[in-house]
Design a protein around this nucleic acid. Structure first.
Lengths: 218, 218
DNA sequence: CGAGGCGTTGACACCCATCAACATGGGTGG
DNA sequence: CCACCCATGTTGATGGGTGTCAACGCCTCG
């Protein structure tokens, strides 16, 4: 039923316009879902961490609207699926997990829309750092006061709808404010409380707050 | 199992921070899902049209992260739900429809992220008009060359992450270019091909392209 | 007929993009 | 072990797109 797939850093799982082959569950590594636009710019819509599903809308769409590219070496499980209805009867746990994942991702995207629409560069960067921290804690891939990320400043730019050069400036500002320090893919969390305040971050949307009867099914 | 609910224009279905009461299916009218930010600005994340589900992540979250407000008089169906697992066994068709709706919404949000991140004001406005047209056609609520919308220019601003004043300028520009004309909640589609070109619009992500075995289940 | 919501215009300011040039540093091959 | 190189990060100057503010016009509805 399940097969493992491995990708090297930089390899694409699927490209925009390609037909979906199957669904995946990320076991290890980071992936970016992105679109290239005429003019050469790029927007990263999403990033997937261990525990996230990918390509689940193959159940609805024939082709991918985005590239999905490994940012690190990645290990995936291929999930054999015919239709969602089939999945519900044969693997209800999987169907539920998928629904969970979908809702989670929707919450992340909604929050990103808020950031891109109404927060300035400093707030955006602070906010996405809070989001990443929260997600890493959720899958127990974080401890200490330093975030180890595979993200370049260029990636931050493409996630936040900014230019690389401006990311540099904003990191400088945050460092001067005594909030975080960026050094070659390490973000040192100098003052987490201040970071949350700058971001206006409310982590509720990530934690499935007080519904104790619901848990991440993986 | 189902109960009707009606809202007047401007009434809230739920407010940010409130507990979810149940899920809904929109039968008629437009609703906006929005967040107010410190500073008094507002970002509209989403809008719901007939056929869309609302509050489906009550299955995962306890409280809403956004206000959901009726933009027009609205008719809704209240859906009785305990858990997704329960729903899968007792109402598999509903579970499937929900999954469909969720994937659809995710696609819309992803495209909005691209717009807010990397498209300028003109492209954004053109793109959202294309999106609205496509969605109205999908539910067979559009014909002719004029879009009848309940959206004020202020709403466009809050959807697109722009200021009201700039929306005016952009509509002027689009009118001078011979693309569309806005007049008191009517958007006349002067040159649809040009509109799509300006937007860089690819409607695939709305139509569940060539998967003929899948249809909107409503 | 008045009022208020909505739309419009112009002047000005600011955030962020663009461009060009330079610094750093880790990896690779000699 | 060193030299080189290319990816990545950094800085400053300049410009454009968009926000802010203030004021005015239009239209609808009571």
């Amino acid at each position: 039923m399940r097969k493992r797939v491995n990708l090297g850093a930089g390899e694409a799982l699927i490209r925009e316009g390609e037909k979906y082959k199957c669904m995946y569950l990320v076991e290890d590594g980071w992936l970016l879902r992105a679109r290239f636009l005429p003019g050469g710019t790029r927007q990263i819509v999403n990033f997937a961490l261990p525990g996230d599903f990918l390509c689940y809308n193959m159940l609805m769409f024939e082709r991918s609207e985005f590239d999905i590219v490994a940012r690190t070496p990645v290990a995936l499980w291929e999930l054999e699926t015919k239709s969602f209805r089939d999945m519900m009867t044969r693997h209800p746990g999987l169907a539920e997990a998928l629904m969970w994942s979908n809702a989670h991702e929707e919450a992340l995207l909604a929050e990103r829309v808020v950031s891109l629409g109404r927060r300035d560069a400093t707030q955006r960067l602070a906010h996405v750092l809070c989001e990443i921290l929260a997600r890493l804690q959720l899958i127990e891939k974080h401890d200490g006061d330093t975030l180890l990320l595979p993200l370049l400043q260029e990636d931050f730019a493409n996630i936040l709808g900014l230019s690389v050069i401006h990311i540099v400036r904003v990191f400088n500002r945050l460092e001067q404010m005594g909030v975080v320090k960026y050094k070659s893919r390490r973000v040192q969390l100098v003052d987490l409380e201040k970071l949350r305040r700058v971001a206006g971050f409310d982590g509720e949307y990530l934690y499935f707050s007080k519904r104790n009867d619901v848990r991440a099914p993986f």
